[in-house]
Design a protein around this nucleic acid. Structure first.
Lengths: 190, 190, 190, 190
DNA sequence: AATTAAACGAGACGGTACGTCTCGTCTTATT
DNA sequence: AATAAGACGAGACGTACCGTCTCGTTTAATT
């Protein structure tokens, strides 16, 4: 039998305030400038309340991603009937994912967070490679699944990340070329 | 007539000591733990001497990459005659690029550096996507070049980066599957 | 009802360690060489803990004076029955107030501290012109008090400070002459 | 036979520019904020040119005092016929000696300089205790000279310095009381 | 109801690093 | 040889955060 615990229970209000504060500071100033003290200040919360539940800022962000507070609105793909165009459009959106006025791209910030926190890294990939994308991509590949599908998904999303890191521009034509390279020009029609 | 600048000239010894120190600290402890003070300390140099020539640690690392002090030994591809195998082997090496004892992968650290510094981002891509890789990849694609070639290269390298960020394992079979996805199974043989 | 302040309370141990460190460094090397970093280092304290409670090094020294950690043992005058001799002896002691091995006179250091910090200036005068001196001086002046007494005290102590600043020697004969000038030769006898 | 020196001779223009710069910076911001780099910058001179001729900032200020670039206009006493009033007026002027907009009193700054530099200390006293003051004071004391005269002068000027350091106000009445204490009320009239 | 213990806000603490400033020494090309 | 310019190693400045550690208050479940 488990030892019965007495005393107050974890405050959901505090948890919410912390995640809200983290998300808003992250989108405003990027991952590098995100600080535990800043989160506590904006959330109106003691620092210990954050450290009690999360080991570091990376894990706070990881939880925010998990709850769909970041990236959530990029999950759905357009559906024009042409999978190739839809994928390119969705990747373009991913690439331009940016919110900060001072030019710190949000995608780069997410990459920085992923580089610094294992949990964030895991979740970032899972979230980006979400169901809608995989479904469309599978169709475009003629029903591929499993490792094959994942390879294609990683290639598409990875290429976008690499270009974002290199600060190169990436227009729609480039994006279509990328989709063609990975998905193949003639496969869907065959 | 140009204004003749008088006074002492930049110390090459100091520049070298700084880059050496930065490279060794970076490979030992990763980008996050790299500090300007640490570099100055190990280089036996005043902090101002670093700040005089570089705006931040990202730019020091960028210069180290440019000079081939990082990554240089991963530039050459093996040559077994089978481009598919060679590419997979080279990508595996890129993926396992790691030196830190405390588990901070070197590739992830480079990604963090790229996310934080525009110059590093630019140079990282240029360096990784170096001549040897592009040449072999072009052959594998049946002589592709220009945007088409770059799309394929970004897809391959990007996928590896994404998997590194997500802390997933990536064995040789996965790597071959990736190469097949991007390069195509039958193209080289045709 | 007053707002109840919660949270940890100021650490008396840290306060003591800081004042102790400041006093020892001050007497060892003088005010000019006294640094906030040095105090923090010797006190085994974070710099912020000093800056949290004092604006600058001058104010730390001011508090040390207020607590009698500097100057305290020069407060008592000898009592030979002859006020003139006693005052001269006490002023000589004030003049020779020195501790530093490298010749930085302690009195000059106090003057530098007073010049740089309003609070130290105020407290320095209050401390030097302490009760025992005023009492004896008042007797020597035939019971003078108030502004008259202060004028005489300032004249005596000020003259000593000026001579200390000018690095001139000041023997007992000079000191007696000074006392005679301010107190008057014949007053005590009358 | 002396070794004949060849090469250019010390630049008087540079010397002047340095002293001018030092004086203006001193009166603007006080001794504490005076820096060798600041002097060199404003004087349009290499730092080495200052260090070649002066060991430190205190000595530059000492030379400026010696040349009458500081204090020079306070040397003359008014002459109303009443030595007591004249001395009090002159001491008041000394006390209010201030130039900085941010309240750093010039007299306190001179004291700081004197505390930090032996040469400045020596010259400060010599300059303040200049001929005009001594002459008037001697008359007021009924022709005193030598150590006796110096004791009185030190007492007067020292008292003013001490009050300046303590940031206390010092009005004309106080000043007259001080003069009376040192010079004696009835001496001049007798 | 009284007790008990954990979660909370607040924030002090010993630290490390930041990026800037000045120190005094040392090159360099010019005059 | 003296100069203007300024790079250099050194280290203090005052600030921002780190992660840990009290504080006193508030809130549940257990007696």
């Amino acid at each position: 039998m488990a030892l019965a615990r007495t005393g107050p229970v974890r405050s959901e209000a505090a948890r919410m305030a912390i995640l809200d504060a983290a998300v808003s500071l992250f989108t405003e100033r990027g991952y590098d400038h995100l600080t535990m003290e800043g989160i506590a200040r904006r959330a109106g919360v003691g620092k210990q309340t954050i450290y009690r539940w999360w080991p570091g800022k990376g894990d706070v962000i990881a939880e925010a991603i998990l709850e769909g507070r970041l990236l959530s609105d990029r999950r759905d793909l357009p559906d024009t009937g042409d999978a190739r165009t839809d994928l390119a459009a969705w990747l373009s959106e991913l690439f331009t994912l940016r919110a900060s006025p001072d030019g710190e791209g949000l995608l780069r910030s997410l990459v920085a967070a992923a580089a610094g926190s294992a949990e964030t890294g895991r979740r970032l990939r899972t979230e980006i490679l979400a169901a809608p994308l995989m479904e469309r991509l599978s169709q475009a590949l003629g029903g591929a699944s499993g490792p094959q599908l994942h390879a294609a998904a990683d290639a598409l999303v990875g290429a976008v990340i690499l270009r974002a890191l290199s600060r190169e521009e990436f227009d729609v034509a480039d994006m279509l070329l990328l989709v063609d390279t990975v998905v193949g020009r003639s496969d869907p029609s065959s």
